[in-house]
């Protein structure tokens, strides 16, 4: 089995397992995994910027929010059907990333973190400022009739799961292809040594901008899908917390691994979900898990597995 076959076999097997979940999972977990797949798509986008290109942004909630509101407001106030709204959301995420990137990429490191954080905070406040349209922190419900995609009711368990799966699968395949392509190699080179890649003739600014825009498209797609699949569009989904969450998911799963975001989002979700069964101190569980993770498995779950055993994991 060649390396390429092995890599594709692994990822297709994961996709097949997720697809099988549509019939095997009990109702509660089916909805959860559908949500995790949407959030993992968001995290995959984050991973393209952070894990592969080395851009530690604290403002991705802005791109997620652009997708969420781009799709949600058009459905709610302009009566757009779900399909075009989804597309609008994706483009809104990408466009927002391009606008932020043009400015923020003039900075690096901690300054980049703060600049992206500030832009996202401005976006969050803008949502509150326009409460007349957005209903601010309370948010809006996307009417059930509007949540129809190609004749399928996205508020029903199975179509929702399959739609989330389609989104995640498309994101995963594109990402796997991307990071193994020459473009992806340049992104990794930028992360490892920007000066050297500049000397090799690559324009770091343009390459980073491209990576950020791709990342924004992912985030926008996930945001738009979130609104349409779960029927709620609210400001808390565009708050700072939603900038930090994808970072945590990616680090937990393994930054710079293709499947890491899924593993991270899934583990985090069930960590919180199960912890409530034996303790009311749910924040403590999350906090301790993060500290232990960074102490004993700093490269995340898949990153550690790659280091110890599966050296070929992309």
């Amino acid at each position: 089995m060649t390396l390429s076959t092995r890599i594709w076999a692994l990822h297709l097997a994961v996709l097949a397992a997720l697809l099988a979940g549509s019939v095997l999972l009990p109702a509660y977990h089916q909805t959860n995994v559908a949500k995790v797949m949407v959030l993992a798509t968001y995290a995959m986008g984050y991973n393209i910027a952070f894990g592969y290109t080395g851009l530690l942004s604290l403002g991705h909630a802005l791109f997620f929010g652009a997708g969420l509101y781009g799709a949600g407001l058009l459905v709610q106030h302009a009566g757009l059907p779900a399909g075009p709204a989804l597309l609008a959301g994706i483009l809104a995420g990408g466009a927002m990333a391009a606008a932020v990137g043009l400015l923020a990429l003039r900075t690096q490191g901690v300054a980049f973190m703060i600049v992206t954080l500030m832009f996202a905070q401005a976006g969050y406040l803008t949502i509150l400022y326009n409460t007349a349209w957005t209903r601010g922190e309370e948010g809006i419900v996307i009417a059930r009739e509007a949540r129809m995609l190609f004749g399928h009711d996205l508020s029903a368990d199975l179509p929702r799961y399959l739609a989330a799966f389609a989104l995640f699968a498309a994101g995963l395949v594109v990402k796997l292809w991307l990071v193994r392509s020459p473009t992806g190699r340049v992104m990794i080179a930028l992360r490892e040594n920007e000066e050297r890649s500049r000397m090799l003739g690559y324009d770091p600014y343009a390459r980073k901008l491209a990576a950020l825009v791709i990342s924004g498209l992912y985030a926008g797609a996930a945001g738009a899908a979130y609104g349409l699949l779960f029927g709620y569009v609210g400001a808390s989904l565009a708050s700072t917390q939603y900038s930090i969450l994808p970072l945590l998911w990616v680090l937990l799963g393994g930054a710079g691994t293709v499947l890491g975001p899924l593993v991270g989002a899934l583990s985090m979700f069930y960590l919180i979900d199960y912890s409530s069964a034996f303790t009311t101190a749910s924040l403590l569980v999350v906090g301790v898990a993060l500290v232990l993770l960074v102490l004993f498995a700093p490269r995340g779950i898949l990153g550690t597995i790659r280091e110890r055993w599966l050296k070929w994991l992309p």
Binding site: F50, G51, Y52, G54, L56, Q108, G109, V179, I188, R191, E192, N193, L251, G254, A255, G256, T257, V294, P298, R299, G300, G303, T304, R306, E307, K311, W312, L313, P314
Partner: peptide, 11 residues
């Protein structure tokens, strides 16, 4: 920026 938290992409 290389980080302890980002595993090396394999060669």
């Amino acid at each position: 920026m290389t980080s302890r938290l980002i595993g090396k992409t394999p060669n």
